[in-house]
Computed example of a mutant assay.
Amino acid sequence: IFIMAWENQTINSGFILLGIFNHSPTHIFLFSLVLSIFTVAFMGNTAMVLLIYLDTQLHTPMYFLLSQLSLMDLMLICTTVPKMAFNYLSGKKYISLASCGTQIFFSVSLLGAECFLLAAMAYDRYVAICYPLRYSVLMSQKICGLMAASSWILGSLDGIIEVAVVLSFSYCGAREIPHFFCDVPALLTLSCTNTLLFQRMIFICCVIMLLFPVAVIIVSYVHVIRAVIRVGTGDGRRKAFTTCSSHLMVVGMYYGAAMFIYMRPTSDRSPTQDKMVSAFYTILTPMLNSLIYSLRNKEVARAFTKVLGKGKPGE
């Protein structure tokens, strides 16, 4: 499939990424802000992955799933921001067909994988709060690993299908993508081929990959809230609501932006709106995820302090 898609595009390979910034003072400031956000997101998510790996007290299903979320966020920002920054600083806007296909694959795969992973994290909280005595059985290491692997695999399958189909289309005109990375909806606007059937397929995939996990999350948290209100003590309620509210904040930001981008009709799309919302969920959300989970979690703070303590001379 990839070979056929590649051969169909080799005659006129490559695109122009119009980007999101120009060289006005305001946009230079915004570009610097994006680089700062990228730096915080990169360091925050890297730290989360390393802390959870290094601290044995964090080797639990909840933190294992959190480490997978941080890894996905880390890969997502590295898929889009470095190329955008290089094009802006060098003045070059060209992106090769291979790089474009790579961006599509990783962005689609990671976004899809995060959808399923967030549902798995909600289920983990549901089991922990509603069935604490059976938690070690219902969320065993094997089941937890299977959930994480399934998220990666389902996301990757979606990425493979979309990149193969998108690169099989013919593109004409100036081949200028009104975006800062190769996003599927933006790329389809350049196609000379009728893409209506594929757009409907994307919509159906979004219904499955967004609404199904959202349903799992809603059902899980309805049971969690009922259980906490019914039997929880003051401290228990506070701890449960803190953990759950962190997850719900991430879910709200992530799914809201994804639905806005991928579940609207083509006729309602605005390149400016799409770029701003895409910047939110591909750049800002990965930073916020790490901050939300680290700042609101005493265990992560304890692990961070412990690692810093070990790194001090004489300790």
Rank of each mutant, 00 (worst) to 15 (best):
N194H: 12
T195C: 14
L196W: 11
L196E: 14
F198A: 03
F198Y: 14
Q199L: 06
R200P: 07
R200W: 14
R200Q: 15
R200Y: 15
M201Q: 14
I202G: 06
F203T: 14
F203R: 15
F203G: 08
I204P: 08
C205D: 15
V207P: 08
I208A: 13
M209S: 15
L210Y: 13
F212K: 07
P213Y: 03
A215R: 02
V216D: 07
I217H: 02
I217G: 01
I218N: 01
V219Q: 08
V219M: 02
S220W: 06
S220M: 03
V222P: 06
H223C: 13
V224P: 11
V224N: 09
I225G: 05
R226T: 10
R226W: 14
V228W: 14
V228Y: 13
V228A: 14
I229W: 15
R230D: 12
R230S: 13
R230H: 13
V231G: 11
V231Q: 13
V231T: 13
V231D: 15
V231A: 13
G232V: 04
G232H: 10
T233D: 10
G234A: 04
D235Q: 13
G236C: 02
R237F: 01
R237G: 12
A240N: 06
A240P: 08
A240R: 06
F241C: 01
T242D: 03
T243A: 06
C244S: 12
S245G: 04
S246L: 01
M249T: 08
V250F: 13
V251C: 11
V251D: 06
M253W: 05
M253G: 09
Y254P: 04
G256N: 03
A257F: 05
A257D: 07
M259D: 07
M259S: 09
F260S: 09
I261M: 10
I261N: 07
I261S: 07
I261C: 10
I261Q: 07
Y262C: 05
M263H: 10
P265H: 12
P265M: 08
T266P: 10
T266Y: 14
T266Q: 15
T266I: 11
S267K: 12
S270A: 02
S270L: 01
P271D: 04
T272W: 06
Q273C: 00
D274F: 00
K275V: 00
K275T: 01
K275Y: 00
S278W: 00
A279S: 09
A279Y: 06
A279L: 09
A279Q: 04
F280Y: 09
F280D: 03
Y281A: 01
Y281V: 01
Y281M: 07
I283S: 03
T285V: 12
T285E: 12
T285W: 11
P286A: 03
N289P: 00
S290A: 11
S290I: 01
L291Y: 05
L291P: 08
L291Q: 09
I292N: 10
I292M: 06
Y293C: 05
S294K: 03
L295S: 07
L295W: 11
R296V: 00
R296Y: 01
